[in-house]
Design a protein around this nucleic acid. Structure first.
Lengths: 211, 211
DNA sequence: CTTCCATTCGGCACTCGGTGCCAGTACAGT
DNA sequence: ACTGTACTGGCACCGAGTGCCGAATGGAAG
């Protein structure tokens, strides 16, 4: 979901030629073009030209055009991992997960508008929706590993995987609703989303034994 | 998830040139190649050649190479829609959904082996994993519409969307586990998957009021 | 049988994303 | 100046996907 860069200071200006640009810079230029003219009708050549770099260089900063709106997602995941690890174990699992999702998606209010447009692209443009599945897989894996650790199960066990999926889905549903309504509060939508799933998935086998 | 063809009889052999092949035939030829040599290293030209048609013709039967393993998914969805509509309303929602998923994924035992290989492709090859997101969106929409109808909500409301997502995720988690274990029973895994989510998502606010 | 219409076929040329290769360019330390 | 290192970007190439259009096929009307 969220994925803005984290700008950790480059610790090694050691030797060799200096980078002529940065991921963030290209991303910003490209996003502007996407919003103006639509994702599909902006070619990689257009982006490279607008950023003042060669087409070949573009592909050194981004593996694919689809990655542009994501920024440095991997470091976001790393952050989420360490955030989760710092949550005390007496916090209920679902609450720990909710806290992580909320924290992960919290950003400075002056970036919210930009973030909304970025997310709208990601959840609207078919190519990006498809590509996002690969990012989501990594996200789910982080969740699954945490859940697995807490429950003493292997990370690829059905239960942590299912919970990872459900949490992702619930969060995305909340996200989509949030994007449609300027007034809405993401935290609250997440809560409602999780609750809706809880209610729906509990079978009310009233007055009958467990099978 | 499942998606084998449904072979509804062509009702109009009326006029014009006869099709020289069929979606199912191309799909079968292609799947064989995919399994032999891997999805990525089979080009559309290869498929066309193996199927004895022109490359241009291939793209009349399939919008993209990624669609090949899916067969006629849209008609599968249609089937699921009508199946859901036939479920009496006194069946608990979660049970109705489970029944639909199970029914949707049930197939003749002589096709299971083939189906497994097809699904393994879909859940393994990155391009296909990504592309699948678009199919899943349609699948979720069917679920969301059903849930919305039963709850008297608009289909794009948070609750039905969240449930659609969670059901999809739970089912896919079950599917992945099923694919890894030849002995496992899909029905049972689905049940366990849904149950895991129910347990995880209920916050145990013991002795505290609802906020 | 011929003509006409509908439909499918498939070659050709083109766009665009993505990659391998490699020579060029900037910068650091010796 | 010399050398090693890292970023640059042009070029050629591949594969997916599309628009165009003439050719092939078959049914129905004359």
């Amino acid at each position: 979901m969220s994925s803005s860069g984290s700008e950790s200071a480059a610790v090694r200006p050691r030797s060799g030629r200096q980078p002529s640009t940065s991921q963030a810079e290209i991303s910003h230029v490209a996003l502007t073009l996407f919003i103006e003219r639509g994702f599909e009708s902006v070619t990689v050549d257009d982006i490279a030209a607008a950023a003042g770099i060669g087409r070949r260089t573009f592909f050194r900063y981004f593996v694919s055009k689809n990655d542009v709106p994501w920024g440095d997602f991997e470091s976001q995941l790393e952050q989420m991992r360490s955030y989760l690890d710092r949550i005390p174990n007496d916090v209920a699992l679902i609450d720990a997960l909710r806290m992580a999702v909320i924290h992960f998606n919290h950003l400075p209010s002056d970036e919210v508008a930009y973030h909304r447009r970025r997310m709208t692209l990601l959840l609207t443009v078919p190519t990006l929706v498809a590509h996002a599945a690969l990012r989501y897989a990594a996200w789910r894996q982080v969740i699954a590993e945490y859940v697995a650790a807490r429950m003493g199960l292997p990370p690829d066990d059905l239960t942590p995987q299912a919970i990872g999926w459900a949490l992702l889905g619930a969060s995305l549903a909340a996200y989509e609703t949030w994007l449609r309504d300027e007034e809405s509060q993401l935290d609250e939508l997440l809560e409602r989303s999780y609750e809706a799933i809880a209610v729906a998935f509990v079978s009310k086998r009233v007055a009958s034994f467990d099978e």
